[in-house]
Simulated scan of single mutants.
Amino acid sequence: VADHIVNPSTARPIPHPVGTAIVRVGSLTAAMTGANRSALDAAGIDYATVHLHPGSHAGYFPGAEQIHLLMHIRRSDGLILGAQATGIDGVDKRIDVLATAIRAGMTGPDLIDLDLAYAPPFGSAKDPVNMAGMIAENVINGSLKLWYADQIDESGFLLLDVRGPDEQDEDPVPGALCIPHTEVRDRLDDIREAAAGQPIRVLCASGVRSYLAYRVLRGAGLDAANLSGGLLTLRATERLAELQPA
């Protein structure tokens, strides 16, 4: 898989297809490029996956649809290894950009400076591809520690839900300490007492508010990690597990 993407002796991309594909299922579009987790695991590559759920264009302009995007990067240097996305609008554009980035041997942080077409009906000032790059850079430089949906049943940590009360009531997370992200700074003592020396795993709906809470916790010297993709990714992972044969 690694040789398929980049030649280690020259660090230059090999001119092979990277497996870009797209399909329409009803109103939903699903697309991918590069390697997926199964291929990366089989190849023994040390990688990280970033999940995000941005809008297809500026949220204040009517008609924005959510894109569910994930990108795999090599931990050692941030090289982009693969990406997948689903959504109603804007999926093809982002996967095409990422397919080009893989072919060019770009890293996740390289995506931050891509000057992509912007106007409110078509995108956001920070495009989802730019945002994926920002998250990747934070992972590579160590300012963001992620945990993943398939780790939810592990033990030995405090689960901290920083969504609002209405969200927590509508879709509760069993065993979680619930403190809205706007109250985390004022309730650090409560969190520290509840953690009792254990690591803290933070979550919210999509990973944005939990990132803010994570930064507060880290600033206070607490061992914390942010759920990649938030509850949206967690619930999707649970639904996928239910569909797997027993």
Rank of each mutant, 00 (worst) to 15 (best):
V173D: 01
Y148F: 06
N141I: 09
D190L: 14
E137G: 14
D189W: 02
Y118F: 12
L146W: 03
V202F: 03
E154K: 07
P199C: 05
R187S: 00
D115M: 13
L177T: 10
G175C: 10
E183G: 04
K126Y: 06
V202Q: 02
P172M: 00
P128E: 10
P180F: 02
I152T: 09
D166C: 07
D190M: 15
D110Q: 10
N130W: 04
D115E: 14
D161F: 03
L159I: 05
E154V: 02
N130I: 12
E183L: 11
I135K: 02
D110S: 14
P109A: 15
L203N: 08
D169I: 12
V129K: 07
A136M: 08
R201Y: 01
A194D: 04
A195L: 06
M134K: 03
P165I: 08
L159V: 05
P180R: 12
A125W: 00
M106H: 10
Q151T: 09
V202K: 01
I112W: 14
R185D: 13
E167L: 10
D171W: 02
R185G: 03
D115F: 11
P172C: 03
V129I: 09
D166V: 15
P121S: 13
R192L: 03
L159R: 04
S124R: 12
D186I: 13
R163G: 11
Q198N: 06
E167Y: 11
L177K: 12
G142D: 08
I152N: 00
G108S: 09
Y118N: 00
I179M: 06
P128W: 04
E183Q: 05
A125Y: 11
S155T: 13
D113W: 04
A176K: 07
R192F: 00
A205K: 07
T182N: 12
D169L: 15
P165T: 10
V173L: 10
D113P: 01
A125G: 11
A205I: 01
R185I: 11
C178I: 00
C178P: 10
I200P: 07
A119Q: 14
E193G: 09
I191P: 13
G133R: 09
S143R: 12
G133D: 07
K126C: 01
P109Q: 06
V129R: 00
I152P: 01
I200R: 13
M131Q: 13
R201M: 01
L111N: 08
E170W: 07
Q198K: 13
D115W: 08
E154A: 11
A195T: 11
A136R: 05
C178H: 10
R201G: 02
E137I: 01
D115P: 11
L144Q: 11
I135Q: 01
G156N: 06
D110L: 01
D186F: 12
A117C: 14
P128Q: 02
D171L: 11
Y118I: 07
Y148V: 12
Y148E: 13
I200S: 12
T107F: 01
N138Q: 09
A196N: 15
E183A: 14
M134E: 13
I191S: 12
M131D: 06
L111T: 12
